[in-house]
Design a protein around this nucleic acid. Structure first.
Lengths: 213, 213
DNA sequence: GTGGGTTTGTCATTTTTGACACAAACCCTT
DNA sequence: AAGGGTTTGTGTCAAAAATGACAAACCCAC
């Protein structure tokens, strides 16, 4: 299903809505109000309703939104029909953390390979994901039609890894290193920077502290 | 140093500028142009200049910006004068990854304690950070004046940890679990969600792919 | 049924963020 | 010393995102 020009931020929130909904689905509830979703994500109910409007979902006026239906609709919009395959490069602490985060999550995104250069890790399986040597990367990406790459290697190696993956045909990259990367325009790149997040928290924590003092 | 109402996004970028500048500082260069910074972060030169204007820094018209000066100025603005202390709760793969990310980074942010419940980890030191049992958390946070908390425990435990930390006097929280948290308004909370990032990459990678096909 | 209390859907507005355009400053070359 | 090529600094505009406001739909209680 396609909706033209879905705003960037809305895509992010849809993903968050879905995970929040999956969490409350286990309970006996079948419906949820916009203000309940809003409260979980610290946003306003209007924002939730507007996002849902954009994807064309209508709630029940008195009962709210059908949780199951909504989860499925969000899936139809943000997931790819045939699923997308993901590879993690760099099986240090971070790489392992990412893999275990995904474990058990039913999703159209499947991590199906990991790469490293440490001989002790090669040919072993971590949380259901097989680890190969980086030299096999191009081959395995092509064979398995992997379209998404996660980079969690030491930062010096990031540019080289990125280039190899792009040449192998990857379509999207998530970069966990602080090293800025350059990729062609047909590859979507997201820089995910823990340090910046932490510094931001520190800045606003400090500011908040002064304000409430 | 205080600048009133520095935009949210500018704060994020300042942190990124600083890290990009630190990377090129090692080389022989002493000055940098706005378009060079822009290229590294995939933004426009105007944006860089605008941000620097907001913090009142003037570059040299012909040589660009003095790297060293700029790094220091950014520090004066986003860092706290006396530094801020950070604790990591949950010393699994993710917790360890965070700590090693920080190792060697000179910064006003210092991770000075970790907490876990696994007896094997208690009273050991990881990358220079001592690990304590969670039951000691309140005590140690207060004693050491820790103001920032990073939550990297399994998601079910996140709300309880957050509450304890808030009561212990924490001022900012960075939450790596998908569990939405609730904190009082005087605590700054940032949710850092790996899954959402990955789903976003997947969505736009898919979209890009269709566009360029 | 009829009125009151909720909640949705959406238009209109504000706020935030980013981009354009261009003058002024500057150095280098000649 | 004069002209050309860069780069900065900033007023202005455009786009994106968030918010406010409110009518319409609906259920429940009575």
């Amino acid at each position: 299903m396609f909706i033209k020009n879905l705003p960037h931020k809305t895509v992010e929130r849809l993903s968050q809505y879905r995970r929040a909904l999956l969490m409350i689905l286990s309970k006996e509830k079948t419906h949820v109000f916009s203000h309940e979703i809003a409260q979980m994500l610290h946003i306003t109910p209007v924002q939730v309703r507007r996002d849902l409007m954009l994807i064309g979902y209508s709630g029940n006026l008195r009962k709210g939104y059908d949780i199951k239906e909504l989860i499925e609709l969000i899936g139809k919009i943000i997931d790819s029909d045939r699923g997308q395959r993901v590879a993690v490069v760099g099986l240090g602490n971070l790489g392992k953390a990412i893999i275990s985060y995904f474990k058990g999550k039913r999703s159209k995104l499947a991590i199906i390979a990991a790469f490293d250069i440490n001989p002790e890790k090669i040919n072993r399986v971590y949380d259901g994901v097989a680890c190969y040597h980086i030299s096999q990367m191009t081959e395995i990406i092509k064979q398995n039609n992997i379209s998404i790459g996660i980079i969690s290697v030491p930062s010096e190696q990031a540019p080289e890894i990125a280039e190899t993956m792009v040449l192998a045909g990857i379509k999207g990259l998530l970069n966990f290193t602080p090293k800025p990367l350059n990729v062609p325009p047909f590859v979507y790149l997201e820089e995910y920077d823990m340090i910046t997040s932490l510094e931001k928290v520190a800045f606003f924590a400090k500011k908040n502290d002064e304000r409430f003092k």
